[in-house]
Write a protein that binds this DNA or RNA. Structure first.
Lengths: 119, 119
DNA sequence: TCTACGTTTCAACGATAGTTGATATGTAGG
DNA sequence: CCTACATATCAACTATCGTTGAAACGTAGA
């Protein structure tokens, strides 16, 4: 991920409705949510949401697929992962002992309570 | 960290000059950089930089201390850690196996090549 | 205390982002 | 087909953000 992509991603996440969309999609898992459901969830008008979804998609944070009359959106976990890595990568430039707590704290999140990391 | 703080932080990082400032400060380590040095590094006018530094400080991403005539800024590693945790926290809601790759990827960053995690 | 230096604040302008309403696309069912 | 439904696109308006220049503040040395 280059700076331009990271900027787009951070800017996308720096907007109330879009941040909620991403969190809702992340929580919803790979199956995703329909645009209409998302509109109700974040309480945003459909046309407005469409604008934000396009921006999130362009930022590589979400993906979409059509399913009948609905368009299903889901979180782009790879994109989120890249963004986190981009943010944390430079913390290691000569001072790994400084950023280690951040990594350790993340490693202590609920994700590690499962056996997913050992799969 | 609540949503309002996370929004401020993401919005702050979604701006070219501010993102570069944060990365420069993160790379510089705890000793930080003077405002003037930062202005040269990111190629931004001093008064303009001051505006961005204030915003980053308000977002909890950087801290400052006066040192003689200079004001030294440094990255707020705790704030960055909180932000990463906020972004990744919800990935665990019922689907830990999905977000695990993101955590694993981050854990593979250079931070872990040192012995900082085992200190 | 006077001057020089580094940094910050302020007001104003131009550019950009977000919302809204109307309209268009695309899809399923009668 | 034609209608109903879900979503996307477009133009216009408003508000907010980022930049600039001038000026103020705080600090150190002569």
């Amino acid at each position: 991920m280059d700076e331009r992509q990271a900027l787009a991603a951070f800017a996308a996440l720096g907007q109330e409705h879009r941040l909620r969309v991403v969190r809702a999609l992340v929580a919803a898992g790979p199956e995703g949510l329909a645009a209409g459901v998302l509109a109700e969830t974040v309480n945003v008008a459909g046309n407005n949401l469409s604008f934000h979804l396009k921006e999130l998609s362009h930022a590589g944070l979400i993906t979409s697929r059509r399913e009948g009359k609905s368009v299903i959106y889901s979180a782009a976990y790879a994109g989120l992962s890249d963004l986190v890595q981009f943010l944390m990568r430079d913390c290691c430039q000569g001072h790994p002992e400084v950023c280690a707590p951040a990594v350790a704290a993340l490693a202590a999140c609920d994700c590690t309570t499962g056996d997913a990391l050992h799969a």
